[in-house]
């Protein structure tokens, strides 16, 4: 059953245009020029309950705008959107109770108070029974190893610690739909891995549906069997992540590690794989050989290169 359904979604912004400089500034007092920027253009897709979906595209592709429409923050210019049976733009309380939106660059934690106070506030706002609150908080704290972090003022926490607390604050009401907009941005590699593991466990434990955007392709590879790719607001791919890789970069990558520590890579067509491996093994002695798909970063770069865009994964 589809939990999220997006049909012909279009979202336009009215943008004030003004060249730099004082004269242009004065001119704009009397003659303001506006242009319509179409962030999302006739986008359609659907997501079933419990799926984990990566939402990919270059900067400015319309990913965040789509997430904001899905969570009810923005009103669509055209098209229909349903999430868990609700029209998000109405922002009904029952709808807000079922979803959460985590934005890596925005925070809900109260800056000068410990995260525990934000949790208490959210308990009141979401009307979470005390026992359920204690259970969820204890479970999430243990999964994320929060310990005494929650008792320190938010402003004294590191970015990673803050992000963990943000996730707890966002998940205390046990939402069934998670919109995650670059949740691991700015975190170190180990913290990213911790969050990925946590999100996977949350998805399995609560059968939650996850729609994730990320600049880190490792997030997508680890979490999302399915990806939706958009470019300039248009849908360009919707399907299995592995198939996308094979479609864009059909070759396999052989990585050789030599005894002297040097490394070689060979990109070969699947049909030539056996012959190439045989040839390589008969050459110089090697310490290790692996056959991999090309990294998703490269796949995405290829996917958008034709359009002359910057690629998401920098």
């Amino acid at each position: 059953m589809n939990l999220i359904s997006v049909e012909h979604l279009t979202k336009e912004y009215r943008v004030h245009e003004r060249p730099p400089g004082l004269m242009a500034s004065l001119h704009s007092v009397f003659h303001r020029k506006y242009k319509i920027a179409r962030a999302v253009d006739d986008l359609s897709f659907s997501i079933r309950s419990g799926e984990r979906v990566g939402f990919l595209g270059p900067n400015g592709a319309g990913k965040t705008t789509t997430l904001k429409v899905l969570s009810g923050l923005l009103h669509p210019t055209a098209g229909t959107v349903r999430v868990s049976g609700f029209d998000p733009r109405r922002r009904e309380h029952d709808f807000l109770q079922r979803i959460t939106l985590v934005m890596g660059q925005k925070q809900q934690l109260l800056w000068d108070l410990p995260p525990a106070d934000t949790f208490t506030m959210n308990r009141a706002i979401y009307d979470i029974p005390k026992q359920e609150f204690d259970e969820t908080l204890s479970e999430l704290s243990s999964l994320l190893e929060l310990g005494k972090l929650v008792e320190r003022p938010t402003r004294q926490l590191s970015l990673g610690e803050r992000m963990k607390c943000e996730l707890v604050a966002a998940l205390l009401h046990r939402p069934k739909v998670l919109f995650l907009d670059e949740p691991t941005i700015g975190l170190d590699v180990s913290m990213q891995a911790e969050l990925r593991t946590f999100l996977k466990k949350y998805n399995e434990r609560f059968e939650a549906t996850i729609l994730l955007t990320s600049h880190y392709m490792d997030d997508v590879t680890a979490l999302c069997p399915r990806v939706i790719v958009i470019d300039r607001g248009h849908l360009t791919y919707d399907g299995d992540l592995t198939q996308l890789v094979h479609k864009v970069r059909p070759h396999k990558r052989i990585v050789l590690r030599m005894h002297d520590g040097k490394q070689e890579t060979h990109d070969v067509a699947p049909s030539d794989l056996k012959a190439t491996i045989t040839r390589l093994l008969s050459g110089d002695p090697i310490s290790d050989l692996t056959v991999e798909d090309p990294p998703l970063e490269e796949v995405m770069r290829d996917l958008f290169a034709e359009r002359g865009d910057r690629v998401t994964n920098s």
């Binding site: 904001k68 923050l73 922002r91 309380h93 807000l96 109770q97 939106l101 809900q108 706002i125 979401y126």
Partner: peptide
Amino acid sequence: EGTLSMRLLRPI
């Protein structure tokens, strides 16, 4: 700054 988003996501 767009941080109003966080208030809009709460069910009050």
